[in-house]
Design a protein around this nucleic acid. Structure first.
Lengths: 200, 200
DNA sequence: ACAGACTACCTATGTTCATAGTTAGTTGGC
DNA sequence: GCCAACTAACTATGAACATAGGTAGTCTGT
C-alpha cells in the first residue's frame, strides 16, 4: 500500500506523467523508494479511479500524447490521513543477518568478502544520501525547488528540514551497518586462525 | 529465495516438522526471519522434490502422524553454496522514512507519536535481541543446544560467536533508529512552535 | 535522412507474502 | 467424559514485486 502514498507524495510537488515518476524512482527519489514502471502505470490508473489523482492527456510532439496526473483534493486528504495514522511495523526479514548468523558454514574468505561488500554497499549509499542532503539544503534539488515554488517562504524551512532529517536517519543506520561489518572483518580473522577450513 | 535457506539453516541443527519450523519462526528465530505456515508447508514439499531435505512420516499419538524433515547431503551443499556466494542487495523501500520525509503535512502531534512509536518499537526489539544473546552465550537456547550436540566442542565458540554477532548487528542498527527518533522528537518541537497547524 | 537514444505506455508471467480460512488428531485439566 | 488449547497440515485468494518482454512516437547528432 506504500507505493500509492509514495506516488501521492511525489505528486504533491507537481503534476507528473507515469514516466516522470518512473524516472524519479530510478534516480533521486529512488534512494528512499523504488518501483518498476510495470507497477507504476497500473497503480496510477487505480488511483485515478479512486479519485485521488486526475489524469489529463496532453500533446507531445506532432502525433504523440502523454498523460499527466495531478493530485486532487481527495488525494491530498488521503495523503494527510496516511501521515496522521500510526505506522505498522512489519515482521523481521533480514537475509543478510541470516547469512551472518551461519558464517561458520562458509569459507573464511567468503565471510571476509561478505563484510567487505557490506561496507562498500552502505558506504556508497551514505555518499548518495549525503549528496542528496546537500542538494536539499542549497535548494538545487529540482523536485524540491518545484515544491517550494508553491509554498510560502516561511514554510520552506520546515519542508526542507523534515526531508534532510529523513535522509540523516538513513545515513545513521548505514553507519551502524558499516561499523558492524568492520567488527565482522576482525571477528573472522579472530575465529578463522590461519588454515582452519569451513565447519562440517 | 531466502525462505528456502532460512529453512535449511534451521534444519542444520536438527530434523523438524513443518509445525516445528512454524513455531520457531513465531518465537525466537522469528527475531531474524519470519514466515506464515501457508508459506512453510508448500516450500518444504518443493525442497523435498528438489532433494534438499528428506521427509519421514512418523506416528504421533494413536492415529495421528506427522512429517519430520531432515536435511540431505545435497541440502547441506546448497546451504554452503548460498553462504559462499555474494549476497544481492535489494532496492531501497522504506515506508517509515518516506513518512518522515513528509511530516510537514502531518499534525505535529502525529509527528511526535510517530517518533515515540519508533522508539518503543526498536527499544522492544533491542530487549528481545539482548535476551537472545544471553541465551546463546550461556547455551540455554534450546535450538543452539541441539545444534552444539552434533558438533565437536572446539567448534562451539565459532558457532556461538557468529550468531551473537548477527544479533549485535541488529541491535546496533536499532540503536541508530532510536537515536534518530529521539532527535526527531526534538526536531518536531523546534519546527512546530506552539500553535502552528499542519502545512497546506 | 536516418540511426540510436530516449520518452511514453503497456502486457504477461511468476514469486513472495499476507490474510483467512478448513480439517483432523492430541493433550491436559476439571 | 468432555472441553479447551494445542499440534499438524492444508487450501484459497489477493496484493506486491521482479523480470522480461512489446509498441509507438520523439529528439539529437552526423
Amino acid at each position: 500500500m506504500s507505493l500509492r502514498f509514495a506516488l501521492l507524495a511525489m505528486l504533491t510537488s507537481q503534476p507528473m506523467t507515469g514516466y516522470d515518476v518512473y524516472k524519479n524512482f530510478e534516480t533521486s527519489v529512488g534512494y528512499v523508494w523504488h518501483a518498476p514502471d510495470s507497477q507504476i502505470y497500473p497503480e496510477l490508473r487505480r488511483m485515478e479511479q479512486d479519485g485521488l489523482i486526475r489524469g489529463e492527456t496532453v500533446p507531445w510532439g506532432r502525433k504523440g500524447t502523454k498523460k499527466r496526473y495531478e493530485i486532487t483534493v481527495d488525494g491530498v486528504a488521503a495523503f494527510r490521513a496516511w501521515l496522521n495514522e500510526p505506522p505498522q511495523y512489519t515482521r523481521e526479514r533480514d537475509p543478510l543477518r541470516l547469512r551472518a548468523a551461519y558464517l561458520e558454514w562458509a569459507e573464511p574468505d567468503a565471510g571476509r568478502q561478505f563484510f567487505r561488500d557490506h561496507i562498500d554497499y552502505h558506504g556508497g549509499r551514505i555518499r548518495d544520501w549525503e549528496d542528496m542532503i546537500r542538494t536539499l539544503r542549497d535548494h538545487t534539488n529540482p523536485t524540491l525547488a518545484r515544491r517550494l515554488e508553491g509554498q510560502p517562504e516561511d514554510e520552506w524551512q520546515r519542508i526542507v528540514e523534515y526531508k534532510v532529517f529523513a535522509y540523516e536517519g538513513l545515513i545513521e543506520r548505514a553507519r551502524a551497518e558499516v561499523a558492524w561489518a568492520e567488527r565482522g572483518l576482525a571477528l573472522v580473522d579472530r575465529l578463522e586462525g590461519a588454515e582452519r577450513p569451513a565447519s562440517s
